[in-house]
Design a binder for these strands. Structure first.
Lengths: 159, 159
DNA sequence: TAAGACGCGCAAGGAGCGTGCAAACAGGAT
DNA sequence: ATCCTGTTTGCACGCTCCTTGCGCGTCTTA
C-alpha cells in the first residue's frame, strides 16, 4: 500500500503549486534536507502518486477565446457504440476533459477553441454527424471563476 | 504584442507534456541550443504565455474517490449576490473549476471529494444553505475518459 | 552599402542533483 | 531496561545542468 506521511504531504502540496521547485527549495518548505526531498520525490513519482508535471499555458495569450461544455447523448448504449465514441473523443485535441455522468446526459465534454467557428465546426461537423452520437447540447463559458487541477490535500491525514 | 514562433511552439508543446524537461532535452526536441531554450523559456514565462508549472497528483492514490459536476442557480442576479457566491467558491478547495455558463444554470462547478459523504456535505451543508444560492443539482462522474489542461497547439500558426 | 538590431551557439562559472555512507531513530523481543 | 534490526536522516562529493557574457552571422532600414 502507498504510504504518504506529513513530509510527503508538504512536498506534494508544494509541487502542486509549483512543479519546478528545486529540491533545495522543497527542503526549506518541508523542513528536510535537499537529498531527502530528492529521494522522496523519486519515490512519489515511481509510486505514481505524482503522475506528471505540466506547464500551464495561457489560453488568452495563445488565442483560444472559447471554452464550452458539451453534453452528449449516445445513439445506443451498446459497448460497441461507447467504444466508438471514446475513440472519437480521444483523437480530438480540442476536447480537454470528457466524463460519463449520472443524470440526463451520457457524457459531458469540455472543449477549448479558438473562436465560435471552431465550436460550430466541432459540434456540427464532427460530433453531430458521428454515428455513435444521438444528441448534443453545448453551453459556452462566459466567465472562469476558478480553473485548476489541485487536489485539496489540506486536511489529509498522514498514513 | 506577444509573438510566438515555431520554436516557441515546440517548446510550449513539449513543456505542456512534461513540465520538468531540462533545457538540454528541450534543445533536442526543438532543434536549438540549450542556452537559447533557457532564454526563450524565460521570455515565455515573463510574458505569461507560460503561467506556471504544476505537479499532477493521482486522485486515486491519495484517496479522492468522487468527482462531481454541480450546477448552481443563484437566488438573485444582483452584483452583490454574484460577489458573495464567487467568494464562497474561492474559499472551497474541493472546487477545482468554476464557470458561469450560457444555458439554464448560472454556474457549473467541478469538485473533487473523498467520498459521497464529502459531496453530501458540500452540497447540503455548504452550498444549499448559502444565501446567494437558490438551487443546486449535482451529477457524479462515473468514468473519466480524458482529463487534461493541454491546449491544442498542433495547428497554431507562428506569429 | 553601412549601421543597427536581433537571434544564434559556445564556453565557463556557479547552482542543483542524486548516490554512498555513517549516525540517529523507532519498534519489537527478550 | 536493553539489545537488535530495519528505516530515515544529513552530509559530502562527483556529475549534470543552468544561465550569462561574448562574438558571429543575418535581416532590416536608412
Amino acid at each position: 500500500m502507498i504510504s504518504v506521511d506529513a513530509f510527503d504531504l508538504k512536498i506534494l502540496t508544494a509541487l502542486q503549486d509549483d512543479g519546478r521547485l528545486t529540491n533545495q527549495e522543497l527542503a526549506e518548505l518541508a523542513g528536510l534536507s535537499a537529498s531527502q526531498c530528492s529521494r522522496r520525490r523519486m519515490r512519489l513519482e515511481e509510486e505514481k502518486v505524482i503522475s506528471g508535471y505540466h506547464a500551464d499555458l495561457s489560453s488568452e495569450a495563445l488565442g483560444f477565446g472559447v471554452i464550452a461544455f458539451i453534453q452528449v447523448g449516445l445513439a445506443t448504449h451498446s459497448p460497441d457504440n461507447s467504444k466508438r465514441f471514446r475513440a472519437l473523443v480521444n483523437r480530438i485535441d480540442e476536447i480537454q476533459e470528457a466524463y460519463s455522468l449520472t443524470g440526463d446526459a451520457d457524457y459531458v465534454l469540455k472543449a477549448v477553441l479558438r473562436d465560435l467557428k471552431g465550436l460550430s465546426n466541432l459540434v456540427n461537423d464532427v460530433l453531430m454527424p458521428h454515428q455513435s452520437v444521438a444528441h448534443v447540447r453545448s453551453s459556452i463559458v462566459l466567465d472562469r471563476l476558478k480553473e485548476s487541477a489541485k487536489l485539496p490535500l489540506r486536511d489529509l491525514k498522514a498514513g
